[in-house]
């Protein structure tokens, strides 16, 4: 019996698994489209005509963040923590699957599902919203950032589930983190500048803050200083990495 590496069968299995999870569908596809429509109708109608385009773009960008946060964090955290509680990953490891292979398959499958959610979101925006045409580079920056945020969030949710081992605790923590992130990064209607100084510093370490607050400025093109944004990715990624290493260390199999 050989150690099993990530393959197409595993990715298909994970896709079927995601497909059976209602939360991922609702929070990843229905929720961001619904929220964008509500926010753009209510807030968009209250701002002067000259600022309207920027506000609509800003709302669309903020709500696009809901997709990776819902699919890769809330949805995945809920699905995977239930599996951990029932010891499904242990069963998989006893069949020769390495933790790395399982995680890779999960990430690929979730990225495929997230791509479907992005396509639905984009089509919905084009059909229902009247917004300025973006520069190609801005769309690429946005997509790359959203995929990276998604991967980092999935790794955090995965590690939390492996550390706490209970659906209830993991779901509670991911939900609390989710809403905290939404408030800190300006996705709940309060802009980051309105937050107390200390919270602004915390918000500056999160890549979502820059997408939510700054990306609208160069949506149709123009310069942007990416350094703080990249630094926030390094910080956010480091947190995910540390949690993953700790979770894997705790779960290691040693025969000595």
């Amino acid at each position: 019996m050989k150690q099993k590496k990530c393959n197409m069968n595993m990715v298909l299995y994970e896709l079927r698994n995601i497909n059976g999870n209602f939360m991922t569908h609702f929070f990843g596809i229905v929720f961001p489209n619904m929220m964008t429509m509500i926010f753009s109708r209510t807030i968009g109608s209250q701002v002067p005509e000259a600022a309207r385009d920027k506000v609509i773009v800003s709302i669309m960008l903020s709500m696009s963040l809901v997709i990776p946060m819902s699919i890769m964090f809330i949805g995945y955290g809920a699905l995977y923590s239930q599996e951990v509680e029932r010891e499904v990953p242990l069963r998989m490891r006893l069949f020769g699957f390495h933790e790395r292979s399982l995680l890779t398959a999960k990430i690929i499958a979730h990225m495929i599902f997230m791509t479907v959610a992005f396509v639905i979101y984009a089509v919905f925006q084009v059909l229902t919203m009247d917004m300025p045409k973006p520069a190609v580079s801005s769309v690429i920056y946005l997509l790359v950032s959203l995929y990276l945020i998604g991967i980092i969030l999935l790794v955090i949710a995965h590690s939390l589930a492996n550390i706490f081992r209970k659906f209830g605790i993991t779901f509670g923590i991911t939900m609390a983190v989710y809403f905290t992130l939404m408030i800190l990064t300006g996705m709940m209607g309060i802009s980051t500048e309105q937050l107390p100084q200390a919270l602004q510093r915390v918000a500056a370490t999160l890549p979502m803050t820059y997408i939510s607050n700054d990306f609208a400025d160069f949506w149709t093109g123009g310069p942007y200083n990416f350094m703080p944004f990249i630094q926030s990715f390094i910080f956010f990624g480091a947190i995910a990495g540390i949690l993953l290493i700790y979770a894997q260390y705790r779960d290691r199999r040693v025969i000595k």
């Binding site: 019996m1 050989k2 150690q3 099993k4 069968n9 595993m10 298909l12 299995y13 079927r16 698994n17 497909n19 059976g20 999870n21 599996e83 029932r86 010891e87 499904v88 242990l90 069963r91 998989m92 490891r93 006893l94 069949f95 020769g96 390495h98 199999r253 025969i255």
Partner: peptide, 26 residues
């Protein structure tokens, strides 16, 4: 470890798909 197979007292699998799919993946 992966050269040993084990049927544990409790063996759990996902319930989001038919067991045929799980078997084919494993």
């Amino acid at each position: 470890p992966e050269q040993m197979a084990a049927h544990m007292q409790s063996n759990a699998y996902v319930t989001t798909m038919p067991v045929k799919r799980i078997m084919e993946m494993i």
